[in-house]
Every structure is written in C-alpha cells, then in structure tokens.
C-alpha cells in the first residue's frame, strides 16, 4: 500500500515541477521570439540572467500582463494535461497575414511503470536547462534564415487544447488558427527538450514567398 500511495504524490510533485519548468520556458521563449523578430521595439526589453545566459525580457507592462495571464492558464492546463500545443503567431499589422508560427508541441512523457520500486533516475535539471538553452539559442539563430520582417507586426498566442479542457469563459475564446498558406509555407524543426513528464518539441513555420 505504501509504495502505491507514495508514487502518485511523487509523480504529482514531478508534474508540478515539470509544469513550472515548461511554463517558465515558454515565457522566456516568447520573450526571445518577440525580441528577435522585432514585434516589440528592442528598447522595451531588458536583459535577465536565466538558464546560465542572458535572456531579454519585456518591460512593457501590458505585454507582461498578457503573458502572465496566458502562462497562468497554460500552467493550469499543463497540470491537467489538456494542452497539446502552444503557438506564437506573428501577424502583419496591415495585411493581417500570419507571417510566422512558432509551434511548441507539448507531449506527455509516459511515466515508468510504478511497480519498479526505483523509477528511472530523474533527469538532472542542469541537463534540462542545457536543452532549454539550446532551444533559445536556436530561436536566436533562426534570424539567419527566416525572412526579414520589415513591416509592423503584432502577435497572438494560441493554445491547442483538448475538447474537454476547462476553459475560463469570457477570457479564452475559440479562434482562427492563423494558418499560413500552404503554397507559401516552410517549416523548420527546432530542438526539443524534455523533463521527466513533458517533452516540448519546437518548430517554426513561416511564410516564404520565394
């Protein structure tokens, strides 16, 4: 009885920790993207030490507020496992055409069967951080191949959730997926990182008129 009782609590803790990690990652990733893609003026960002490197984080109160609200909800969804994908879409302000979609697939990693008294050793946080660092660096480096955006843009964050997910009414609404035209779409798979519970696969799809 004792081990079976212990297992879920342990797992819950791990899930919570993992969720925190993922949420935090998403925050920094969104900030990095917004900075790198010039959605907000560079002045609005200030440097913060995170994951053993400097990360640029916005100072815009409205944006901060917006991100916080989203991340809080995402945190909830992550705990219930009802979110499958988060998308940061960058849209042209004038033409309202989606230019880039930064996709973060969230997969639940199957936990080891509980009968093993010693579950697989937890992934050290340093390793996870290294993976996250790699993703952030890759996001930074995408500037080299993504088309230059020379028009004012605005962004939106979409959450792909399961039908059964709890959704706070009036706050979250069903929306257009902001798809990129098939004929003009290109995609690049980015790195991924995984905690013991989640596995985040990053990818960028962008509109490319070549």
């Amino acid at each position: 009885m004792a081990p079976t009782k212990q297992a879920p609590t342990r797992q819950a803790i791990t899930l919570k920790g993992s969720t925190e990690l993922v949420t935090e990652f998403f925050k920094y990733a969104a900030n990095t993207i917004l900075f790198q893609r010039g959605v907000y003026p560079a002045d609005d960002f200030h440097m913060v030490k995170k994951y053993g490197q400097t990360v640029l984080v916005t100072q815009d109160l409205a944006l901060e507020n917006y991100l916080d609200r989203i991340l809080k909800q995402v945190n909830q969804w992550l705990l219930t496992g009802s979110v499958t994908q988060l998308v940061l879409a960058i849209i042209s302000k004038d033409s309202r055409v989606p230019l880039e979609r930064w996709v973060f697939d969230i997969n639940l990693v199957q936990q080891q069967p509980p009968e093993g008294s010693q579950p697989a050793p937890a992934k050290p946080e340093s390793e996870i951080q290294a993976e996250i660092r790699a993703i952030l660096k890759q996001i930074v480096s995408t500037v080299t191949f993504l088309p230059v955006i020379d028009e004012p843009t605005v962004f939106n964050i979409l959450a792909y959730t399961s039908e059964s997910a709890d959704i706070p009414a009036n706050e979250w609404v069903d929306t257009d997926p902001l798809a990129i035209e098939a004929s003009k779409s290109q995609q690049v798979k980015l790195r991924s990182f995984s905690t013991d519970v989640h596995r985040i696969e990053a990818m960028v799809a962008y509109r490319y008129e070549g």
């Binding site: 399961s162 069903d174 798809a179």
Partner: peptide, 22 residues
C-alpha cells in the same frame, strides 16, 4: 508542418486565444 502552419487542426482539439490579446 501542416499542423505547425496551422492549416490542420488535429481532431478533438480547440484553438484558443486570450480574448484580450495584442
């Protein structure tokens, strides 16, 4: 890519966004 580009939404999923987004 199709999913990533948002052209396809897997069945049983909803696409949500905060009502008050930029």
């Amino acid at each position: 890519g199709e999913i990533g580009a948002g052209r396809h939404i897997p069945p049983g999923t909803r696409v949500l966004s905060l009502r008050d987004n930029p």
